[in-house]
Amino acid sequence: EDYYQILGVPRNASQKEIKKAYYQLAKKYHPDTNKDDPKAKEKFSQLAEAYEVLSDEVKRKQYDA
Rank of each mutant, 00 (worst) to 15 (best):
E42H: 08
L7A: 00
S45C: 10
L47A: 07
Y22M: 04
K43M: 12
L54Q: 00
K59W: 05
S45H: 12
Y51C: 03
R60N: 02
Q46M: 10
R11A: 07
A40T: 06
K41M: 15
D36S: 08
S45T: 15
E42R: 05
N12T: 13
R11G: 05
F44K: 03
K41D: 10
N12L: 10
P38E: 11
K16E: 15
K35M: 09
Q24K: 12
E52Y: 07
L7F: 03
L25Y: 04
D36P: 04
S45E: 14
K16C: 10
Q46D: 06
K43H: 09
Q5T: 14
A40R: 05
L25P: 01
E52T: 10
A21N: 07
P31K: 09
E1I: 12
K59S: 09
Q5L: 11
Q15V: 13
K41E: 14
K16D: 10
E49Y: 08
K59F: 04
A40C: 08
D56P: 01
E52M: 09
D36Q: 06
F44W: 13
A26K: 08
I6Q: 05
S45R: 10
E1S: 11
V9M: 04
I18H: 00
K27D: 12
E49C: 07
S45V: 12
Y22W: 08
A65P: 04
Y63A: 02
V9W: 00
R11S: 10
K28G: 06
Y3K: 03
T33W: 10
K28Q: 12
S14L: 13
V53I: 10
D56I: 02
E1G: 14
P38M: 10
Y63M: 02
S14R: 06
K59A: 13
R11I: 06
I6R: 11
E57W: 09
E57L: 10
Y4V: 00
K61Y: 08
L54I: 05
D64A: 02
Y3A: 03
Y51H: 04
D36N: 08
A13C: 07
P38R: 06
Y23V: 15
K16Q: 15
Q62W: 09
N34R: 02
Y3N: 02
Y4S: 00
K43W: 08
K27G: 09
G8Y: 04
A65Y: 06
D56Y: 02
Q15A: 13
E17N: 07
D37K: 03
V58Y: 11
Q46Y: 08
E42I: 07
Q5Y: 11
G8N: 09
E57S: 09
L47Y: 05
S55W: 04
D2F: 06
K27T: 12
D32P: 05
K41L: 13
Q15N: 15
K41R: 13
L25V: 04
D36L: 07
D37Q: 03
Q24I: 14
A21K: 06
K61N: 13
L25D: 02
K41Y: 15
Y4Q: 00
E49D: 11
A65L: 11
A26W: 13
G8R: 09
V53Y: 04
T33D: 14
T33P: 06
K43I: 10
A65R: 05
E1N: 15
Y29G: 03
A50N: 00
N12A: 11
A50H: 00
V53C: 08
L7W: 00
K27A: 13
Q24G: 11
K43D: 04
E52A: 13
Y29S: 04
E1R: 15
A40M: 11
S45N: 09
E49H: 11
S55E: 04
N34F: 14
Y4G: 00
Y3E: 00
K39R: 11
A50L: 03
E42Q: 08
Y63Q: 02
Y63H: 03
A48E: 09
K43V: 10
K20T: 13
D37Y: 03
R11E: 04
D36R: 04
K19S: 13
D64V: 02
A21M: 08
E1T: 13
A40I: 15
H30L: 08
A65M: 14
S14A: 12
L25S: 05
E49I: 14
E17H: 10
H30V: 05
I6S: 04
K39I: 14
Y51N: 02
I18V: 05
P31A: 11
D36M: 06
P31H: 09
Q62C: 09
Y51P: 00
V9T: 03
H30R: 06
P31M: 07
R60T: 01
P10R: 10
N34G: 07
A50C: 04
S55H: 08
K20A: 15
K16T: 11
Y3C: 04
L25I: 05
L25R: 05
K19E: 15
P31R: 04
S45D: 15
Q46G: 05
T33L: 12
D32I: 11
R60A: 01
K27N: 13
S14M: 07
L25W: 05
Y22V: 02
E57R: 06
K43F: 10
E42F: 09
T33Y: 14
E57H: 07
A13R: 00
N34Q: 09
S14G: 07
Q46P: 03
K61F: 09
Y22D: 00
Q62D: 12
V58C: 08
K61H: 12
Y22P: 00
P38D: 12
V58A: 15
Q5V: 11
V53W: 06
K39N: 13
A26R: 15
R60P: 01
R11K: 08
K39T: 15
L54E: 00
Y4R: 01
K35D: 11
Q46T: 08
P31L: 06
K28W: 06
G8F: 05
K35F: 09
P38V: 09
D56K: 02
V9R: 01
I6A: 06
D64I: 02
L47Q: 03
D37R: 03
Y63K: 01
D37M: 03
R60E: 01
H30Q: 07
V58M: 11
K59T: 06
A13P: 01
E52P: 02
Y4T: 00
V58S: 10
K19M: 14
S14E: 06
D2L: 05
R60K: 10
N34K: 04
P10K: 12
S14C: 06
T33M: 14
R11V: 08
V9N: 00
H30N: 13
Y4F: 02
Y22E: 00
D2Q: 05
Q62Y: 08
I6W: 06
K41A: 15
K16R: 12
E57P: 15
P31F: 06
A13H: 01
K27E: 15
D64N: 05
Q62V: 09
H30M: 08
K43Y: 11
E17M: 09
D36I: 04
L7R: 00
P31W: 07
N12H: 12
K41N: 13
Y23A: 14
A40K: 06
V58D: 12
D32L: 12
T33N: 12
K19Y: 09
A48I: 13
A21H: 09
V58W: 12
K27V: 12
E57F: 05
E52H: 07
K39W: 14
S45P: 03
Q15P: 10
S14Y: 04
A65W: 06
N12G: 07
Q5W: 13
D64P: 02
E57K: 07
D37P: 03
E49S: 09
Q24S: 12
P10D: 12
Y29C: 05
Q62N: 11
L47K: 01
D56E: 03
Y22G: 02
T33G: 09
L7I: 07
P10E: 12
R11N: 08
A21R: 07
I6E: 03
A48W: 12
T33C: 10
E52R: 06
Y3F: 11
D56S: 04
S14P: 08
L25K: 07
A48L: 14
D56L: 02
F44S: 04
E17F: 06
H30S: 11
Q5F: 12
S55K: 11
K27Y: 11
V58T: 10
F44D: 02
D32F: 04
P10N: 10
Q24H: 13
Y4L: 01
K19D: 14
D2I: 04
I6Y: 05
K28S: 08
E42M: 08
V9H: 00
E42A: 07
A13Q: 01
Q15I: 13
K61S: 11
T33Q: 13
R60Y: 01
G8T: 04
Q24M: 13
A48D: 05
N12R: 11
L54R: 00
K39S: 13
K41G: 09
A48M: 15
K28T: 07
Q46A: 12
A21P: 00
Q5I: 10
A26T: 08
Q5G: 12
V53F: 04
K41T: 14
K16I: 15
A13N: 00
K59Q: 09
K16Y: 11
Q24R: 15
N34C: 08
F44A: 06
K35H: 15
F44C: 05
R11Q: 09
Y22T: 01
Y22I: 01
G8I: 03
Y22A: 03
K28D: 08
L47V: 12
H30T: 06
K39A: 15
H30A: 11
L25E: 10
S14D: 09
E17Y: 06
I18P: 00
R60I: 01
F44N: 03
A50Y: 02
L7C: 02
E49Q: 14
R60M: 01
E17S: 09
